[in-house]
Amino acid sequence: MAKRIDVDDLNVYYGNFLAVEGASINIAPLSVTAFIGPSGCGKSTVLRTLNRMHEVIPGGRVSGKVLLDGEDLYGPGVDPVNVRRTVGMVFQKANPFPTMSIYDNVIAGYKLAGARKHKNELDEIVERSLKGANLWEEVKHRLGRPGAGLSGGQQQRLCIARAIAVEPSVLLMDEPCSALDPISTLAIEDLISELKSSYTIVIVTHNMQQAARISDRTAFFNLPGVGQPGKLVEYDDTAKIFSNPSKKATEDYISGRFG
């Protein structure tokens, strides 16, 4: 079941450094939300707070609230491991596990977590996930081969299959196409449009055409100055952001008149 996300006055710190200040966003279920903005503005950082991945970096912490269907991800007793099972993530660089076959990569979420499942059930999960990631036809004859032997675009789709195999409610994508050629990018974008019917998707992208093509709503982050925390400047329907933004900084950025 796709869930909604409500971020309320979120501050993100790395040690004593305030990386993002006062971000508030409401993300509807079964929608695609794009985070855009210049490098270092904190969009990836905010994305990572949505499944508590920022804590993996030493010193990473937040203040404020992130609600998943009304439940605070940072509430007392919340286990980040359980959060990450509900909110999946795809990274910029495709990174299938090098020691595993394509098959094992898809079910890595179960295998690594030590879940015991019947072979038939696993076969079903693999087929469903690979079909969901539009990779099934290309790899169904070589499921036993290493995942690292696939092309870059195929590896990224394998990573998406791996993420959706554990049936998360939300899928976070951190610049999933930035290392891919236009054809692989198109394949992923098509995939995102299909996945929208089952998942809430949040995607960070540097490609503004991509944000305009695939997202329903867009959040523009900006860095007011060197050494200052990144801020959420504007968050609105994608059509509005790209045609008639209400803030000057947004307009400058999307029209390339930045800095």
Binding site: M89, F91, F97, P98, G109, A113, A163, V166
Partner: peptide
């Protein structure tokens, strides 16, 4: 690699 494992809820 560690991060993608964590992100799977491992």
């Amino acid at each position: 690699l560690r991060e993608s494992s964590y992100a799977l809820g491992v």
